[in-house]
């Protein structure tokens, strides 16, 4: 029974990883870009949401906001930050061909953004973990002895909806066709009339939305936010993405759930200290034995970086 409870918990935990992993895999799949700001965007949504719910709008414009509204603004902040990242990682880049580290430029810029955003949050809000005033914690229901918290079920539903919606967007819509064309060959897509300057920001908006959503759900479900909360989630989401296969959305879903399960089972059988080794060992093994992951494609992420 305890094992089943752990399994349910791992699915709930995995759903947060899934959302962030989908954001990672989307940027890699379309732009071949490992976006290191993703954990920071996740944290930004949570921390801005907390600050608004605790202090209210800046400059004393309002009192503390109700938490759903605060989280909504937190998500907006994540999306805006993500668009800012787009400007400086893709749009204003001066690329000179012939130098192989040039392909690493967006990645290095995103590392810069990671440092800037995270430390600005530290300066503004302090480094301590804060309690998030979400819905009251006793919204728990019991199904045959298994305890499930209602906000977690709701967030699981939201995650499923978002992923299905994203798949639809990529498969059926005009924007999605443009995105897939860019993923295939950016230059050819450009020649055939895909406006890169309009389509690429969509990837970053979706990234911001997914991270913001994950941050908001995390704040509600676990009731705690901190400037460091992105690091752990981000690294596990990367592990999930790699296990599932780079560039594959359903791979990220599967991988995120596998990582959640691995984490919970490791805690159950070996204790909390070995989680890091288990998750990263899983990642390293996948990279060495089956680099394309479970559902991934051979060609993605192979280009020079």
């Amino acid at each position: 029974m305890l094992l089943i409870q752990q399994f349910v918990n791992s699915v709930m935990l995995g759903s947060v990883y899934v959302t962030v992993a989908v954001a990672f895999t989307l940027t890699i799949g379309v732009l071949n870009f490992l976006n290191f700001t993703i954990p920071t965007l996740f944290m930004l949504a949570g921390m801005v949401g907390w600050a608004l719910a605790y202090w209210g709008l800046p400059f004393g414009l309002s009192g503390p906001l109700p938490w759903p509204l605060a989280l909504f603004f937190g998500m907006c902040a994540a999306i805006l930050a993500s668009l800012l990242v787009e400007r400086f990682t893709f749009r204003y880049l001066k690329t000179k061909y012939g130098d192989s580290t040039e392909h690493a430029i967006p990645l290095v810029s995103s590392l810069g953004f990671l440092l800037v955003l995270e430390n600005l949050v530290r300066i503004g809000y302090g480094t301590d973990a804060q309690r998030f005033p979400g819905p009251s914690a006793d919204l728990t229901m019991s199904i045959g002895g298994i305890f499930v918290r209602i906000p977690q079920v709701v967030s699981l539903g939201i995650v499923v909806l978002i992923v299905v919606g994203l798949t639809w967007l990529l498969k059926r819509s005009r924007i999605g066709r443009g995105l897939r064309a860019i993923a295939e060959n950016p230059d050819a897509a450009n020649i055939l009339g895909v406006d890169t300057n309009r389509v690429v920001p969509v990837v970053f908006m979706l990234t911001g939305l997914l991270c913001g959503l994950a941050g908001a759900l995390f704040a509600v479900n676990y009731g705690e936010v901190s400037p460091q909360m992105g690091e752990d989630i981000g690294t596990k989401a990367i592990a999930g993405m790699v296990v599932g296969g780079l560039g594959s959305i359903w791979g990220a879903v599967l991988g995120g759930l596998i990582v959640g399960l691995t984490e919970m089972m490791t805690i159950h059988f070996f204790g909390a200290d070995t989680v890091q080794v288990a998750v990263w060992g899983l990642l390293l093994l996948t990279l060495l034995l089956r680099p394309q992951g479970l559902l991934g494609h051979h060609s993605i992420g192979k280009g020079k970086l």
Binding site: A239, L246, D273, V277, L283
Partner: peptide
């Protein structure tokens, strides 16, 4: 491994070392 995979693999290596020492 190449490209993104290489970055991730070296990153994972550091985490495995840190995790092993921690335990």
């Amino acid at each position: 491994t190449r490209g993104v995979y290489l970055v991730l693999a070296t990153f994972a290596f550091a985490e495995v070392v840190a995790g092993t020492i921690l335990n």
